[in-house]
Write a protein that binds this DNA or RNA. Structure first.
Length: 1026
RNA sequence: GCCCGGGUGGUGGAAUGGUAUACACGAAGGACUUAAAAUCCUUUGCCCGCAAGGGCUUGUGGGUUCGAGUCCCACCCCGGGCACCA
């Protein structure tokens, strides 16, 4: 008997499959479609290791199984090939990344084919192919047009080793998740994608999909939605006495929010003037400014608000020497261009005169520029430019109505009334607020530091500025290392008033408050928040308990209300962060905290100093990378037109072929050095302009690749709508847990965005997601080249064959579990396949077949049922053990074939001499998804002309599953004392009688009385005795 | 600290509240062989016992139940995620 030669057999069938194109998915086929997907690989220079193959083999088994069940299976492959590992590899080895990528893909392709994966190679995609990344760029342009891609100067995570900015999701414990370098903060102008706008839907729609629970919770926690309230604390001692409010074009003092705002301010005891500006329909800024100058009092105690064109008027006033305490410019146009393409000649004429910003800046202490997010007419870039020119604080906020035309505009009220806004989830504790704490990056700190001259008295400018400098320098790593020891410093001579009690509260700066969350400021309630408690204790700030624990479990060792406000804080051992009943809270006393939270928020809203609010931990997605090997961002910067998208017909923006692609130290992409690439004509005005030189992160290409598989060669579209509608969503997506808050989140977001654009039919890309566990090296560590513990599939396939490797990887452990590789274990699977090979060969030679349409074997029927169910649940390990049991039998020969001796001295063991052909074939079919090569070969040896791949998945014979006899355990007081066999027809009294007669059972019944008998048909019988 | 998983033989692991330790690895003994490898057979949770048999056992302690690896409570340990998120 020839031994099984895997090298020869596997190659033969791999060629055969490729030639026959068995695995090509057919668009619009009438069979049920089944889209099985794994995360397409990053073709690194190291090649694949056995761990990478685990999800591939699993999906291959499922794809083959589904095909046999009659589905039209799409099982595609592609390459996620842009990105830094290849670039680093290329730089190190002095090979162009294009060449390195092609070389790596070749290796990967060979390894995947050698594994025998039934991939549809006709649909291969490559993210670095211009035909592909054209559409990645196109999607970016769609985001840009929708206002979801914007440029912002924000402190971003910067990896000093790879010299690039990173998304929040790429930072793990303060380090870059890929290279482990501690991440620094760097203030940079970056492209950012507004994923936060989808935060709610990314949470809610998890209900529509079948994901592992922990994947869902991880995403929910990452998005980190908190519902609470924004509360405004007006700044006191600001020397503000009066307000001058300037309406816009076609406006009047009686219009929109002006009456409401005026009343608010009058209520707080300020003087308010709203001049009726001349010629509101065809306003002239010079004329209007002159009018204001004549009729209103403007001095260092005045706040000027300019709404829309009123802002232009305000600028004119200040330019011409008018003074103000502070200036708020809301939705003010300065470019003279409008997004609705309507001409407003008076406005354009006014702004074309230009402004002397230098003079304007000197005329007031503080500037705030407000832009409305929902304003579709004034370009947002106007606001940014204005803010930059004035050194102003820039607030991009949603107005109640577009262009701030609501009858109430709290955002404007908050801006004109100098104030600090905090976010809290515990509005009920507001009377316990003893001070405010702001982040070192908070704009108020900058203002405090630069305007100390404005107010006399003891200001601790030096100390504060020193603290801020140190705090801003800290990396996340050093912050973590400090073991949460809190530091901070008070802004002396600066205070806010409590919106409900009116008490004065001091303001501190501390780095435990983060600028990126909420508004970067908090109200500190030391009695009811652990962090505030620790901070207050350290700086001896007296605290104020306002919630009395009411539950029995509550730690009740907190101070009595009589300790209120006392400075000797050592009395207090802990703070109470739970719910309870309000005390020391004026009219809210006695309310349960949850109720109080609502009432207080409502009341604050009524007086314009608060509102319900939601905060998220999720940040907008930093999308710029300062590197060569990525998709160029298709934007052109024009000095006149601003950010102009590259016209669709000019896509793709090709990555230029260059000699030097090392990253620079300046934070600029290497593309910036290529004059030919950078210098272009503005597509809008034809003037000289510069191309954006940052590239996209490699998540950009992987965001949507699974859509492209539906129609990979389409030149007109990212994929045809009809094909998308046929194939998507993905029926099963398998990948690693490590992508839960990266690729999986990003691609869900992009899919929703494309859905909103009307480009596809569903809002979720993956119906079902399952995670694969990582395969560790034998030493229990991660497989890594640097540890030298990598197991190469080439070696395993060479020695044992692909079938053995595939089955071993699936047999090793439950699929979603992390498990170390065990090189000794591989042999066991090979041993099994060898037995299958030898025995079936002997059977073929002996030709002693029982022929029948369907198997008469009960054991085989059970195996069919078990294996089919296990595949549905992705329980590959138990499916394989069932295959072994089906072949070897359980405690004796299987009923469908005689057990055989060694190949030389073959003889049936156990009497039976013929083999059930139907069962043998069913067995091979069951085995074929796991071990496709050996089963093809045996199938052919059985005399079949067609491939086993084209066979139908076996069905089990229901009637065979019912056993005619079964063994049941006889228990006494729950302990098994005997096991007896009964006919299936045996009734309870019969079983009971026999059980009681069993000598083993009798021994345990002696001298006792049976008080109860529990009988479960077909399962067990239990005598309860006393 | 918070949120998820998970603790079963020497090892990877199996078990709709109903015979715990399937399947496999490893180990021990045996057959074949000059020998080794390969292959085949037997044994293999722990303790007592010559045996028949008995007792114990699913991280620890309690509980529910005729019966708990499985359900409930508390604790310990391991892995993963988040981490001053107000």
């Amino acid at each position: 008997m020839k031994r099984y030669n895997h090298r020869q057999v596997e190659k033969k069938w791999q060629k055969f499959w490729a030639a026959k194109k068995f695995f090509s998915a057919r668009d619009f086929d009438a069979r049920k479609k089944q889209y099985v997907l794994f995360e397409f690989p990053y073709p690194s220079g190291a090649g694949l290791h056995v761990g990478h193959l685990r999800p591939y083999v699993a999906t291959d088994i499922l794809a083959r199984w589904k095909r046999m069940e009659g589905a039209n299976v799409l099982y595609p492959i592609g390459w996620d090939a842009f990105g830094l590992p290849t670039e680093n590899y290329a730089i190190k080895n002095k090979i162009h990344p294009r060449i390195a990528t092609d070389r790596n893909i070749k290796t990967f392709r060979r390894q995947l084919k050698a594994t025998g994966l039934s991939l549809d190679w006709n649909r291969e995609v490559d993210t670095t192919d211009p035909e592909y990344y054209k559409w990645t760029q196109w999607i970016f342009l769609k985001l840009f047009e929708a206002g979801l891609a914007y440029r912002a100067e924000i402190p971003i995570n910067w990896c000093p080793f790879e010299k690039t900015g990173l998304a929040n999701e790429e930072v793990v414990n303060g380090r870059h998740e890929r290279c482990g370098t501690p991440v620094e903060k760097k203030l940079m102008k970056q492209w950012v994608i507004k994923i936060t706008k989808y935060a709610d839907r990314l949470i809610e729609d998890l209900e529509l999909v079948d994901y592992p629970e922990r994947v869902k919770t991880q995403q929910i926690n990452w998005i980190g939605k908190s519902e609470g309230a924004d509360i405004v604390f007006p700044i006191v001692d600001t020397q503000i006495k009066r307000f001058v409010l300037l309406h816009g074009r076609q406006g009047s003092p009686q219009d929109i929010f002006f009456p409401w705002l005026a009343q608010k301010l009058l209520d707080r005891g300020y003087k308010v003037e709203i001049p009726e500006l001349p010629n509101p329909d065809k306003p002239n800024d010079l004329e209007q400014a002159e009018h204001v100058r004549k009729h209103c009092r403007l001095d260092a105690q005045t706040v000027i608000l300019g709404h829309s064109f009123g802002g232009v008027v305000a600028l004119r006033l200040l330019e011409r020497g008018a003074k103000a305490h502070s200036v708020v410019l809301a939705a003010t146009p300065i470019s003279g261009r409008f997004n609705d393409n309507t001409k407003r000649p008076t406005v354009t004429e006014a702004v074309k005169r230009g402004f002397d910003f230098e003079k304007v800046r000197k005329s007031a202490d503080r500037f705030i520029v407000l832009m409305d997010e929902t304003d579709s007419i004034i370009p947002a870039s106007d606001g940014e430019k204005l803010a930059q020119a004035l050194g102003a604080e820039y607030r991009f906020i949603p107005g109640k109505s577009p262009h701030f035309t609501g009858s109430q505009e709290p955002g404007i009220y908050e801006a004109v009334l100098p104030s600090l806004r905090v976010f809290t989830t515990r509005a009920d504790t507001i009377f316990g607020a003893t001070h405010l704490v702001v982040a070192p990056e908070h704009p108020i700190v900058g203002w405090y530091l630069s305007h100390h001259h404005a107010v006399s008295g003891v200001w601790n400018i030096k100390e504060v500025s020193e603290y801020v400098v140190v705090a801003k320098k800290k990396t996340d790593i050093t912050r973590l290392a400090e073991e949460k020891e809190k530091t901070g410093i008070e802004l002396k001579r600066f205070s806010v008033s409590h919106p409900l009690s009116g008490r004065k509260l001091p303001v501190w700066v501390a780095d435990y408050v983060m600028m990126g969350y909420g508004s970067g400021a908090i109200m500190a309630v030391p009695a009811h928040d652990e962090r505030d408690f620790a901070f207050a204790k350290k700086y001896k700030i007296p605290f104020l308990p306002v919630i009395k624990p009411t539950s029995v479990d509550a730690r009740d060792d907190r101070p009595e209300p009589s300790a209120v406000g006392r400075a000797d804080i050592d009395l207090v051992a802990s703070c109470w962060t739970g719910e309870g009943m309000l005390i020391n809270s004026e009219k809210y006393n006695g309310l349960p905290s949850e109720r109080a939270r609502q009432n207080i928020t409502w009341d604050l809203e009524k007086i314009g100093l608060g509102s319900k609010s939601v905060s998220y931990k999720l940040r907008d997605w930093v999308f710029s990378r300062q590197h060569y090997w990525g998709e160029p961002i298709p934007i052109i910067h024009c000095p006149d037109c601003g950010e102009v998208p590259v016209p669709e017909k000019d896509l793709p923006v090709l990555l230029p072929n260059v000699k030097r692609y090392e990253p620079t130290d300046t934070g600029e992409s290497p593309l910036a050095a290529i004059a030919k690439f950078v210098n272009v004509k503005c597509p809008r005005c034809r003037g000289p302009a510069k191309r954006e030189t940052d590239t996209m992160p490699n998540w950009a290409g992987s965001n949507w690749y699974f859509i492209r598989y539906a129609d990979p060669k389409n030149k007109k579209d990212f994929a045809s709508r009809k094909k998308i509608d046929y194939w998507l969503p993905v029926d099963l997506y398998i990948g690693g847990m490590e992508h839960t808050t990266l690729h999986l989140l990003y691609s869900r977001f992009i899919y929703k965005f494309l859905y909103d654009q009307g480009l596809l039919a569903g809002s979720e890309p993956y119906s079902k997601r399952r995670s694969n566990g990582v395969i560790l090296a034998e030493d229990g560590r991660k497989m890594s080249k640097s540890y030298g513990n990598v197991v190469n599939p080439d070696d395993i396939i060479g020695e044992f064959g692909a079938d053995t490797m595939r089955m071993y990887e699936m047999f090793l452990a439950p699929f979603d579990q992390m498990v170390p590789w065990d090189s000794r274990g591989v042999k066991g699977v090979r041993r099994f396949l060898d037995r299958v090979w030898i025995d079936i060969n002997v059977m073929i030679k002996e030709k002693k077949w029982r022929r029948a349409q369907k198997t008469s074997s009960r054991q085989m029927s059970q195996a069919i049922r078990k294996i089919t169910n296990d595949l549905g649940d992705l329980k590959f390990n138990t499916a394989i053990s069932s295959l072994m049991i089906a072949f070897n039998g359980e405690g004796g020969r299987p009923d469908w074939r005689p057990k055989l001796n060694t190949e030389e001295k073959w003889e049936p063991v156990g009497g039976a001499e013929s083999f059930d052909l139907a069962a043998t074939e069913a067995f091979l079919k069951l085995l074929s998804p796991f071990a496709p090569h050996i089963t093809e070969e045996l199938w052919a040896l059985l005399g079949h002309k067609e491939s086993i791949q084209l066979e139908r998945w076996p069905e089990y014979n229901e009637s065979l599953l019912a056993k005619d006899t079964f063994k049941i355990p006889i228990q006494v007081n729950g302990k098994v004392r005997d096991v007896l066999e009964f006919a299936a027809t045996a009734e309870q009294h019969e079983i009971e009688t026999q059980a009681l007669n069993s000598p083993k059972v009798e021994a345990h019944l002696k001298g006792k009385t049976i008080v109860r008998t529990i009988f479960v048909a077909g399962k067990m019988i239990n005598f309860v005795v006393r």
